[in-house]
């Protein structure tokens, strides 16, 4: 078997087709983008794009601002709240970035690591299990005009105190 025969043999294998639902999902996504484009004022669509370097600086600034806000919030929380820290709190970063023509896509929080720090008997009669949670908040926006996608990742470390009951 020479190289050409081998290549022909490989080419003769047809890759598996995707599920029929995939085309429907693409249709749905493109429809969403299209409706957003149509709803966006014409002026915004034909508006000249700012220089790339300016956009880079703006996004870098927004990212830094978001990081500062989050760090400030975490520090102040740490100072005022020594007990249970709410996991479902809304990150200030989620509200810091959106601009007029940018559409939020997703806001997720992923637990990267959970460390068991053991049981604490600091408060008499109500022991609690101390957990250290390291997570990453990921916020995504998309600019439907040019498909540009922006992602901000905010790492966090929190302490959880889970009440323990003994039978």
């Amino acid at each position: 078997m020479n190289d050409t025969e081998l290549e022909n043999l490989l080419r003769s294998m047809t890759p598996v087709a995707p599920s029929p639902e995939l085309a429907g999902r693409v249709q749905h996504d493109l429809g969403l983008v299209q409706s957003f484009r149509e709803a966006t004022p014409e002026a915004a669509l034909v508006k000249k794009k700012p220089a790339q370097w300016l956009a880079n600086i703006v996004w870098a600034g927004l990212g830094a601002a978001a990081a500062v806000v989050v760090m400030g919030a975490v520090q102040s929380q740490g100072r005022t709240n020594s007990g249970l820290v709410s996991v479902a709190s809304i990150s200030p970063a989620a509200t810091a970035v959106p601009a007029a023509a940018v559409m939020p896509v997703s806001s997720t929080r992923e637990w990267v690591e959970v460390e068991d720090m053991g049981i604490s008997f600091a408060t008499p009669g109500s022991p609690s299990r101390q957990m250290k949670v390291i997570s990453v908040e990921r916020h995504q926006w998309i600019d439907p005009r040019d498909g540009a996608e922006y992602t901000v990742e905010v790492p966090k470390q929190e302490s959880l105190a889970l009440p323990v009951k003994y039978q």
């Binding site: 047809t14 890759p15 087709a17 995707p18 085309a23 693409v26 249709q27 014409e42």
Partner: peptide
């Protein structure tokens, strides 16, 4: 000026490329 309709004509291209992309 009306924005270009991106929901048209993608099916043929998708059908051809999707298995390879997958």
């Amino acid at each position: 000026m009306k924005p270009h309709d991106i929901t048209a004509d993608w099916h043929i291209c998708f059908q051809e490329l999707a298995p390879k992309l997958l």
